[in-house]
């Protein structure tokens, strides 16, 4: 019951922040609100016992993403362009949301030990990973050995994305105002 109360209030808060961020046109305020959204979402993840996800959300969502968005903000105008609401995207988004809401009813209960995800390969890993891999930590052996190519690919993607972002916005952070606007491109971004 208390869990329900906490979850409901946190979700309501998330919805409130999201709607406010949509309504605002001042982009700096939107960036700040998205940071607040990440912090509240991380609190929600902690309540749901996904502490590692919560830390990722707090560090990446509230930290790095906010700073990257601020760096982007120095390249674009401070206000959002006025635009009318287009119907087709609104319809598609609503439809997708409804479909997801329907799909949620099909999910197993939270923490159900009979859920498919706990009965597919997880027992094998728990029993055999120390013998097969030789690493006592099961999560490490899954990430670094069973799914090593997957992890390697992920790392490659994130690394490439980081380099691309740094190349695009790295040298072009806020230019000095009085220095005749002479910008140096392609400087390393530290």
């Amino acid at each position: 019951m208390s869990g329900f109360l906490v979850n409901a209030s946190l979700i309501a808060l998330l919805a409130l922040i999201a709607i406010l961020a949509l309504r605002l046109h001042r982009l700096f305020a939107v960036v700040m609100l998205s940071g607040a959204f990440s912090l509240v979402a991380a609190a929600q993840f902690v309540v749901l016992d996904a502490v590692d996800v919560a830390f990722t959300e707090a560090a990446v969502g509230a930290g790095i993403s906010t700073v990257l968005a601020l760096a982007t903000l120095s390249l674009v105008p401070a206000e959002e362009k006025p635009h009318s609401i287009s119907l087709v995207p609104a319809f598609l988004a609503t439809l997708t949301g409804l479909l997801l809401a329907v799909a949620v009813t099909d999910l197993p209960n939270f923490g159900d030990p009979k859920a498919p995800i706990h009965n597919h390969v997880a027992p094998e890993y728990i029993i055999g990973s120390e013998q097969a891999i030789g690493v006592p930590n099961i999560v490490t052996s899954v990430l670094a050995s069973y799914r090593s190519f997957d992890t390697f690919g992920e790392t490659l993607v994130v690394f490439t994305a980081a380099i691309a972002v740094l190349l695009i916005i790295g040298g072009y952070t806020r230019a000095p105002r009085r220095a005749k606007g002479k910008r140096k491109g392609s400087q390393d971004a530290g």
Binding site: L39, F55, A59, A62, G63, T66, A71, G170, R174, A189
Partner: peptide
Amino acid sequence: INFIGTIAILKYFRFGTLG
């Protein structure tokens, strides 16, 4: 984390860069 994030934002504000 919150503290470091705020410092990062403010540092960005002051210097226009994090480098």
